[in-house]
């Protein structure tokens, strides 16, 4: 696969490290709700189709990015910096 890095451009997927589904929302730091943390950490839907994923460009600029990828076709529809995604999500 080729993964578009917002900083470096399209690069071979071997340069990246996969983390996982980007959609589960981390509970607030001060949350003591174990169930919410367990959901965030362990439960994934494993959907077929377009999902947002976290990757890090470990063999490049080291940016954490969010990639919009289709798990069935492996088509990549775009990416953004995790920093922008996080700030956008909070806004």
């Amino acid at each position: 696969m080729r993964i578009p890095c917002p900083v470096c451009g399209a690069r071979p997927s071997e340069e990246f490290t996969y983390r996982g589904d980007a959609r589960p929302v981390r509970p607030p730091m001060d949350s003591s709700d174990q169930g919410a943390w367990v959901d965030y950490l362990f439960f994934r839907d494993d959907e077929r189709g377009r999902i947002k994923e976290q990757w890090q460009h470990t063999g490049g600029c080291r940016a954490w990015i969010v990639v919009d990828r289709d798990t069935a076709t492996h088509a990549v529809h775009g990416s953004e910096l995790a920093r922008d995604a996080a700030e956008g999500g909070q806004a």
């Binding site: 983390r19 890090q56 080291r62 940016a63 954490w64 995790a82 920093r83 995604a85 996080a86």
Partner: peptide
């Protein structure tokens, strides 16, 4: 890097 970029930018 994860913490600073994705969790607490």
């Amino acid at each position: 890097e994860w913490c600073l970029q994705a969790l607490w930018p």
